[in-house]
Design a protein around this nucleic acid. Structure first.
Lengths: 153, 153
DNA sequence: TATATTTCGGAGTCCAGACTCCGAAAACAA
DNA sequence: TTGTTTTCGGAGTCTGGACTCCGAAATATA
């Protein structure tokens, strides 16, 4: 798996929060329920995003999390970096420490093309774009095919 | 890490074998020693490549492994598929089962670009190219900076 | 044939990521 | 103030990948 489970959960949850419109705090329990993620585990993941300044949290009734910055200012790159770190954007394909222009591995420049493409996509995709896309295409966000947009019922 | 350790060892070992020129069987013990990989562990990895038809093995004195096909016919894609499987080339970024054109995740088409780039590179890079590259650039193949080309000494 | 060399195959250990559980702290509401 | 809701923080369990170890089978060489 490219991204860790934690990272995927963080991305899904952030898209979900963004899709709620930003009116108020969204309780983690509701996110976990809607996205079919373990509540206690999601708690830990969102704590990481909170301490990274991507989410803001509030305890107590009517508490929960909300986006700390405008949706257009949060990129996929931010989320992945906050949870999985930046290794995936900089690492050598063969895992050689210090592989780079000066001391490349045999696959270095070929892998660089792939990595750069990935980095470019991750940096340019905002949570806003992903949330809009979900809404427009009525696209699924979780493993189980289920609606996740603000319930009008 | 993008590729598993097993997969990386398999790639390094195959490049090493290719760089030996294909004269005879190369003992796994020598590969492990030169590349600084656990012998017993490398044994298991190379068994996978043998049963995948990429390497041929022979037991007994003067035994070892050699490439089962011409170096120009073995691609990075073959090696990765044989050891880590093809998931990495087909998987959804968010890990959603069945994510595709019909039921895409919000990041589907963006991720597709990255995945396709990766697949294209992996399919077009041959072990021959990687082995030549190592030789030409006198490039390192292992974590410890050390020569691995046929020892003239 | 006897012996040394080398792969084959299975079983066991170790560790980090994935996930669970529980109590504490904060904050709103009655 | 009291009780309920909710996040915070730590500790524990489980599983799969990474790695080790050992004996068996095959095969070249003397």
């Amino acid at each position: 798996m490219i991204l860790s489970k934690s990272c995927i959960y963080g991305i899904q949850a952030t898209i979900f929060v963004a899709a709620q419109g930003g009116g108020g705090h969204v309780p983690i329990s509701r996110i976990a329920e809607q996205l079919d993620i373990s509540f206690h585990f999601l708690t830990k993941v969102l704590q990481q995003l909170t301490s990274a300044g991507i989410l803001e949290s509030m305890r107590g009734p009517r508490g929960g999390v909300l986006l700390a910055r405008p949706v257009a200012d949060i990129t996929l790159f931010d989320l992945v970096s906050a949870i999985d770190g930046t290794d995936i954007f900089t690492e050598c394909m063969l895992g050689l420490p210090g592989c780079g222009h000066a001391a490349p591995c045999p696959a270095h420049d070929l892998w660089l093309e792939v990595r750069n493409k990935f980095t470019q996509v991750a940096r340019s995709v905002t949570i806003q774009a992903l949330a809009e896309r979900s809404a427009e295409l009525n696209v699924r966000l979780t493993g189980s095919i289920r609606e996740f947009l603000p319930t009008t019922s």
